[in-house]
């Protein structure tokens, strides 16, 4: 267990980086760069992270969520149509650069099979 925290580990704890960005004005895409193949196995587990989970996290239609599992890079990539049109009155993240946070904060069910990445903070 990570000694720096007393909460259950999150997906972000097992990742080198979790990031999000626009993929054109109408889509958002995000990637979890997992620290190794054991951490990748957590993120790539379809019973843990799937279209329905993403739809629930982001309040979007599960039928429009695309998930790419890329073992060669230890990456799981997720894309879906932007729920809010870019730069419209309701858009608070023009580049969609902060929308990875709900994904990174996703609680990983125990027992985990990999050690979380050590972090300074």
């Amino acid at each position: 267990m990570p000694e720096h925290s007393n909460h259950p580990p999150t997906l972000g704890d097992y990742a080198i980086e979790v990031r999000s960005k626009n993929a054109g004005p109408f889509w958002v895409t995000m990637e979890t760069f997992m620290k190794d193949s054991a951490a990748y196995a957590i993120a790539a587990d379809e019973s843990f992270l799937n279209e329905a989970v993403v739809a629930d996290l982001y309040r979007v239609d599960a039928a429009q969520v695309q998930i790419f599992r890329i073992p060669a890079l230890n990456v799981v990539k997720i894309s879906f149509p932007r729920p809010v049109t870019q730069a419209s009155l309701r858009d608070r993240d023009i580049h969609a650069g902060q929308h990875h946070v709900p994904l990174a904060a996703l609680r990983v069910p125990e027992p985990a099979t990999a050690e979380p990445v050590e972090r300074d903070n």
Partner: peptide, 16 residues
């Protein structure tokens, strides 16, 4: 190889 392969992920909905 990682930095080049990972670039296909950047700002693309489909990395393939």
């Amino acid at each position: 190889p990682l930095s080049v392969a990972a670039h296909m992920l950047y700002e693309t909905a489909n990395p393939y």
